[in-house]
Amino acid sequence: MTHEERLAQFMARIERGEKIESTDWMPDEYRITLVKFMQMHALSEVMGALPEKEWVPKAPTLARKLSLMAKVQDEMGHGQLILRVAEDLAKPLGKSREELVGELLTGVCKFHNVFHMPAPTWADAGIIGWLVDGAAVVSQAALLDSSYGPYARVLQRVCAEEGFHIQHGESICLALAEGTPEQRQMLQEALNRWWESLLLFFGPADTNSASATILMKYRFRTKTNEELRQKFFDKYVPRIWSLGLTIPDPDFRWNEAAQRWHYTQPDWTKLKAIARNEGPLSQYRLGLRRMSYEQTKWVREALLGKAGAGAIA
């Protein structure tokens, strides 16, 4: 069979809605783009543990401490699950987990914009759990139909767990919204701080990046950035209002004629800076990760014997 015939067969499978498995033939473009996408997703989960774990030692009740720890642990678990899927797919490219993780530290692999931001109060831990995880579920649920079977299956579990995280975050926000004036103010300030990041989360409406086009072509993704952002508004804006919170955008409104939410554009240059790891806490969080990686290198060496050191991370 020629390459063209194989490719045509592959595309026919994609178009019929079949799932591609890790041992199936696939074009390099599919493999490389997916590895990159899943690598970023996995490492974003791992980096996503850091802003919230800052609040575990300070969580204000025993119950909150327990649920926040469980959530942080889930995020690491998602990182591990997705990394395993990425590792399998990366194997024919000669890439190990060590390299996939190492590329985070060298800046080759990005991590999600929200995890470059500071979380200075307890209310930030609530907003992250509720709205950042809410945004994550909107974008991940859209990938449950992904053409790549192993990823779609892992995402089912990830999305189910994220559902609990949203409840955990919403419960923190609800307690603050119904609390003292200081607690309410802390919550509103946290929303003000996170609003722009939540808009940036979904990416620009008019993205034509090469990888986005490829992901669409292979039906790995089927929804555009703007469709997902609007879906997030549909779901969460009424809830934000019902907590008595103000959306920090005076122009934000439902546009009846266009049947969509109108919002002030965020500063997209910030997303570009974050992509260069020049966000507010990019270097701080990468620094923590790098330091722990280096501090515990001897442990991994002990597990594998010096020769194999680094094959786990």
């Binding site: 791992v46 327990l66 642990q73 690491m76 990394l83 722990s292 515990t296 786990i312």
Partner: peptide
């Protein structure tokens, strides 16, 4: 134990140690 969250020697241990802290 909870101070180790996100900083354990490898991801699998991070998860295991997180359970112990909980």
């Amino acid at each position: 134990d909870s101070e180790w969250l996100g900083l354990a020697p490898h991801i699998e241990e991070d998860i295991a140690f997180g359970s112990i802290a909980q």
